[in-house]
């Protein structure tokens, strides 16, 4: 198989996969390195990458992180079951799409505007994007391919993604379960010992302690900004 879309880094300003001639896989098929293959073939290659490359990570997006739709519960359960079969897999969410100012907490989240910060900082070499809206997924996947050596898997509820090394389209919870079975099969083939274990919780930075701040820190209009619970604001005029 000629690999049209390969693991990066592809360089400063890579040609997009569609511009290299990659077309989305038709219904019932998947994409592997830009080639149309069976979903199983793509899943198998992806499974091996997740099992053999460093720091495998699942990046769940808003469509599976938030409880807005019927199928979220089933899908999120399936994703966690999959994660628990990948040795030392982490879960780093992409809860929204706005750029993070002034600074992203790279251990706690990933963002489509600067995804490489999270991937490089955590030395992630294989990852799965799932539940990310297609536009943002495409942007992210291209930037990851441009600047990192991360193998990307896209699990997409719609038509999939040309930029991912492995792309599965029309994703249902049952497809995630099937992927999990393939991961277990390949893991056994590779002789990797692993007990089903859920990934660790989110390591968000501890909440800032504002209690040490004094109103003096806020200058003339301190009372307007730093009102504390129970503190009564009288007219400032």
């Amino acid at each position: 198989m000629t690999k049209i879309v390969e693991v990066g880094p592809a360089g400063y300003m890579p040609t997009s996969a569609p511009a290299m001639g990659v077309e989305l896989a038709p219904e019932g098929s998947a994409l592997l390195y830009g080639n149309t293959v069976t979903p199983e073939e793509a899943m198998r290659d992806a499974a091996i990458a997740l099992l053999t490359r460093k720091n495998p990570t699942i990046f769940p997006g808003p469509q599976v992180l938030w409880d807005w739709k019927e199928d979220v519960a089933e899908k999120s359960a399936a994703i966690l079951e999959l994660a628990s079969e990948i040795p030392n897999c982490k879960i780093i969410p992409m809860p929204d799409y706005r750029p993070k100012y002034p600074k992203i907490d790279v251990k706690a989240e990933i963002n489509p505007n600067h995804p490489n910060l999270t991937i490089l900082d955590n030395r992630i070499e294989a990852c799965i994007f799932v539940g990310v809206h297609c536009h943002y997924a495409n942007l992210t996947l291209r930037m990851v391919r441009a600047g990192t050596n991360c193998y990307t898997v896209a699990l997409c509820a719609y038509m999939g993604h040309e930029e991912a090394m492995a792309s599965i389209r029309d994703l249902h919870a049952s497809d995630i379960a099937k992927f999990k079975e393939i991961v277990i099969e390949e893991r056994n083939k590779l002789g990797i010992k692993w007990e089903t274990t859920l990934p660790p919780e989110n390591p968000s930075l501890p909440k800032e302690d504002n209690s040490t701040l004094s109103p003096a820190d806020y200058g003339e209009y301190r009372s307007l900004i730093m009102t504390k619970k129970g503190e009564h604001i009288t007219d400032s005029e």
Partner: peptide
């Protein structure tokens, strides 16, 4: 509020400020 309610299974995987 559904769209800002974390899905049950992922709640502990979200950054704290989102929860």
């Amino acid at each position: 509020l559904a769209y800002i309610t974390p899905s049950e299974r992922f709640k502990k995987y979200l950054p704290k400020d989102y929860v």
